[in-house]
Design a protein around this nucleic acid. Structure first.
Lengths: 350, 350
DNA sequence: CTGAAAGCGCTTACAG
DNA sequence: CTGAAAGCGCTTACAG
């Protein structure tokens, strides 16, 4: 936008004071008489004065802008929620977000340099899936927060979903409805989401004195995998009354497979629970899919809040809260819990 | 990120020249002897010099930053693609994107003011759904481009999908496979997507000499609406061999309804085509859903490209290209065509 | 070919 | 309480 309004100087002339006084009056930082302040405020309002944050940033060596590096934002339907959470938190803190998209794993993308040239105060690196990453070389580890990722070596602050808690929550929902034969359908990948949810499942079944049954199929974790998984589960053990699917897409595969058998219906013969709360899927399925929503917006919020504190007090240790104490030492991380979203795919055992 | 490298002054000292000469050597704008230039370049490299775009922006009264106002980015699964397209185009042009999220219809959100204070060169206002909007009051109409929206009064440049072309393309796909009884399932809303696709459908059926059959159900355009629509369609006319659904979610409802009848299967008895290419749905359905993808990434790209030209030559009229000549006078718009994505839900008539 | 100086719009010691 | 001046890091006439 071409600058149409006056700067501080115009206001000063209109109010017949110096720019210093205008600055003091507007910022409330110096001593200004009430009468003068009012004159300045009036003049500013009359002229439609808008502060120039670029000038302020240059002078203060502080941009109040956060760099948001998104790894393939387009590939995940959750990116929007993360961004909204991040943006809201930024707005509350008087910060702006400058965003950049990089290919997956492109940890030294030139775009990151562009963000640095823009003098961003801190960086948020948002991974496209929960995993361990190599820290972007050009990022100052003291000025970076990892979102949905963690870095074992450098102990960069990170915000991730509590995968263990999610697995536990989903399984408990089924246990609490009286199910005794609960299968967990997952994939054969060594990533935190898979590992953590499996552990949560094992903890919840053990706690209830149940025999665990985990079916792992080859990834990716999509509808096909869900169908295959439920087929294999039934072959292994046919008393299954509940399925905890790794995610909603696999749950959709479970629905499709079950719909092939007119004798079995959800939730009466089989209860199903997923993870992700992909509304497009969860709301469209019949019956609606009960699932565990990931705390995407909250992850975005928290990442920004941590990043905002970084430039001010780098020496002051961050207080990290851990809703669940995980034994797997992922480094300093904030783990945020998932939320159960009830629809109609889980029924009690009679 | 705290500034750790030197500025132009440090480079000047290291190379024993003036800052003017450093600036000239680095920008290539002044006359500098090869030897001096090399000395400067070496010094800059050695010191890890990074230009400060904030200073440059202040000096040039030009930030090289574009404001991206997203209306409820989280609510649409396409936001990611639009943003990626926009960001790529921006990167190619040496521009950065500063993004802000506003509630739907909140055309005078304070966040927009924040963008203005950041001295963005131009604004992109991205609507959450293709519609006519009231132009944000604080936006300079000469420095704004509308994305997935248009403004009849003020003739702000806008980039929208070619809804007519999408309807025509989908219908033609069915016509070309030999279908004669093609129903269009849509919703009862007066928005460009509905109106435009209906017109495209009518044009394609008329061209083929077919009797049109449009079933409108109450919105929203989701799976429920698709199921209801196909039920009504069959009641009206039972020779239907192909369904053009307003979007993939409605197409999913068509699948669900059809799966209830063991005598009918897709695509053998009924072909189905959707719009949106929501991969989560289109790839998970069996058979895979043939659909028309909207040009989201391209919309983002084009919006940025137009916005980038705005600040330079406001007087020069923009050349707008119109892939389809629409009769509905939506104002100056670029309409971008959809793309057919073939899967397995359309079969030929035998 | 090279450099001293002004200025982009602000803030902040400092002096009065 | 008020203001003149320096300076944030650059670019760009202008002079030499």
């Amino acid at each position: 936008m071409v600058r149409q309004s006056t700067g501080i100087r115009g206001v000063a002339e209109a109010a017949s004071v110096s720019v210093t006084t205008v600055s003091h009056a507007l910022s409330g930082r110096g001593q200004v008489s009430d009468e003068t302040r009012q004159r300045v405020l009036d003049a500013a309002a009359r002229l439609g004065y808008t502060p120039n944050r670029i000038a302020r940033a240059l002078r203060a060596s502080r941009s109040n802008v956060l760099g948001f590096v998104s790894e393939e934002i387009a590939t995940t339907p959750f990116a929007g929620q993360i961004l909204v959470g991040a943006q809201e938190a930024a707005a509350e803190l008087g910060l702006m977000l400058m965003i950049v998209n990089v290919p997956r794993g492109a940890v030294d993308d030139p775009q990151i340099g562009a963000l640095l040239e823009q003098q961003v105060d801190a960086m948020i690196f948002a991974s496209s899936s929960h995993r361990e990453i190599r820290t972007p070389g050009r990022l100052d580890p003291l000025r970076t927060v990892l979102l949905d990722a963690f870095d074992r070596d450098q102990r960069i602050p990170s915000v991730v979903p509590d995968e263990f808690g999610i697995g536990y929550l989903a399984t408990r929902r089924l246990v609490d409805s009286g199910h005794r034969r609960i299968v967990h359908l997952t994939v054969d990948e060594d990533v935190p989401a898979v590992v953590g949810r499996v552990r949560g499942y094992l903890a919840a079944t053990a706690e209830a004195g149940l025999q665990p049954l985990i079916v792992r199929v080859a990834g990716p974790a999509d509808a096909r995998a869900g169908s295959e998984g439920v087929r294999r589960a039934v072959r292994i053990e046919n008393g299954v009354t509940a399925v905890f699917a790794f995610n909603d897409q696999m749950a959709m595969g479970v629905y499709q497979e079950i719909s092939l058998n007119p004798m079995v219906s959800i939730p009466h013969e089989v209860s199903v629970i997923g993870v992700d709360d992909l509304r497009l899927i969860a709301e469209a399925l019949r019956p609606g899919l009960t699932t565990v929503a990931l705390p995407h917006a909250e992850m975005g919020r928290r990442a920004v809040q941590i990043a905002a504190r970084l430039p001010f007090a780098p020496q002051e240790p961050l207080t990290l809260q851990e809703p669940f104490a995980l034994p797997d030492g992922e480094g300093d991380s904030i783990r945020l819990p998932g939320t159960l979203v009830e629809r109609q795919s889980v029924a009690g055992i009679v």
